[in-house]
Simulated scan of single mutants.
Amino acid sequence: MPERNLEFGKYGARGIKGHEAVARRLDALANFIATPVTTRRGLLARLRYLTRSDHARRAAREAGLTVTDRTLKAWLDGRRSPSRRNLERVEAAYRTVRRQNVVRYLLARLNREGRGTRVEFHPLNQSQVDRPRQRAVQYRALNVRRWDRIVEAWANDDAEALNDAWVTDVVVDLGSEWGQYEYVTNVGFAA
């Protein structure tokens, strides 16, 4: 594709890929449990979320939490503590199940019956770039009406598909200079 940055940061520009900023914002909208899984409170909150129904237990098993029901009960009762590896599995399963559970809600909230959501593109940071090499990049805003592919890729934790959906469905709509917004300091939207 034209306009792709091949050597980003070569002259000192700083920023992140736009799809990574979108993933962070969607994570914030998903409202994950804030307490770390390494604390008792955080572990119990995640385990309760993953074991509150048969559907949640199935989803947790599909997401990689493969311990027995007896072990889960021991963790919930406080008789045993999970290993570091199992804590990572609990966190990964929780995030996967939570993402799958909020997909419909986020799509309804972001698509707003075809009206879409206004997205703000905050340009990359060029404060460390020598003056002659700096680009004239400005803050931009765009109304995004098609969120289905973006949210689906985010829910599946597929960075490549998210990048493709973000660039082809959103960023190219910025016009002929869309490549300047491949890397940004932030992407903001309030849904």
Score class of each variant (00 low, 15 high):
Leu26Arg: 02
Asp27Glu: 15
Asp54Thr: 04
Ala23His: 06
Arg46Phe: 00
Arg40Asp: 10
Thr35Leu: 08
Ala30Trp: 01
Thr51Leu: 03
Ala34Trp: 05
Ala28Arg: 14
Val37Leu: 12
Arg61Glu: 01
Leu50Ile: 02
Ala56Phe: 05
Arg48Leu: 09
Arg25His: 15
Arg41Ala: 07
Asp54Tyr: 01
Gly42Ser: 07
Pro36Ser: 13
Glu20Arg: 13
Ala59His: 05
Ala45Thr: 05
Leu44Asn: 06
Ala60Gln: 00
Arg24Gln: 14
Ala63Asn: 00
Leu44Gly: 04
Val37Trp: 04
Arg61Asn: 00
Asp27Ala: 14
Arg41Pro: 00
Leu47His: 00
Val37Phe: 08
Thr39Pro: 10
Arg25Ile: 11
Phe32Asp: 08
Arg48His: 08
Ala30Pro: 01
Phe32Cys: 08
Gly18Gln: 12
Phe32Thr: 03
Ile33Val: 15
Gly64Glu: 02
Gly64Tyr: 03
Phe32Glu: 08
Leu29His: 11
Arg25Glu: 15
Leu26Cys: 12
Leu47Asp: 01
Glu20Leu: 14
His19Trp: 11
Leu26Lys: 03
Pro36Ile: 06
Ala23Cys: 12
Gly42His: 04
Ala56Arg: 02
Ile33Phe: 09
Pro36Phe: 04
Ala63Leu: 02
Gly18Glu: 09
Val22Ile: 15
Gly42Arg: 03
Arg58Ile: 07
Ala60His: 00
Glu20Phe: 10
Arg40Ser: 10
Arg24His: 13
Thr38Gln: 15
Arg57Leu: 10
Ala28Gln: 15
Ala34Ile: 02
Glu20Gly: 13
Gly64Lys: 05
Ser53Gln: 07
Leu26Glu: 06
Thr66Val: 01
Gly18Asp: 09
Arg48Pro: 03
Thr35Ile: 09
Arg57Ala: 07
Pro36Gln: 12
Val37Arg: 04
Asn31Gly: 14
Ile33Met: 10
Pro36Ala: 12
Thr38Lys: 15
Ile33Asn: 07
Thr38Tyr: 13
Ala56Thr: 04
Asp27Asn: 15
Gly42Pro: 01
Arg24Met: 15
Ala23Ser: 14
Lys17Ile: 11
Gly18Ser: 14
Thr66Gly: 00
Leu29Pro: 01
Arg52Gln: 15
Thr51Asp: 03
Leu43Val: 06
Pro36Val: 04
Asn31Arg: 13
Arg52Trp: 12
Ala30Leu: 10
Lys17Tyr: 12
Phe32Arg: 04
Leu47Cys: 06
Ser53Arg: 05
His19Pro: 12
Gly64Ala: 05
Arg25Tyr: 14
Arg24Phe: 13
Val37Ser: 08
Ala63Tyr: 01
Ala59Gln: 07
Ala21Met: 13
Arg25Leu: 15
Arg61Ile: 07
Asn31Lys: 14
Arg46Glu: 02
Thr39His: 13
Thr66Gln: 04
Thr51Ala: 09
Ala34Glu: 11
Ala23Asp: 09
Ala34Gln: 12
Arg40Ala: 06
Glu20Ile: 11
Thr39Gly: 11
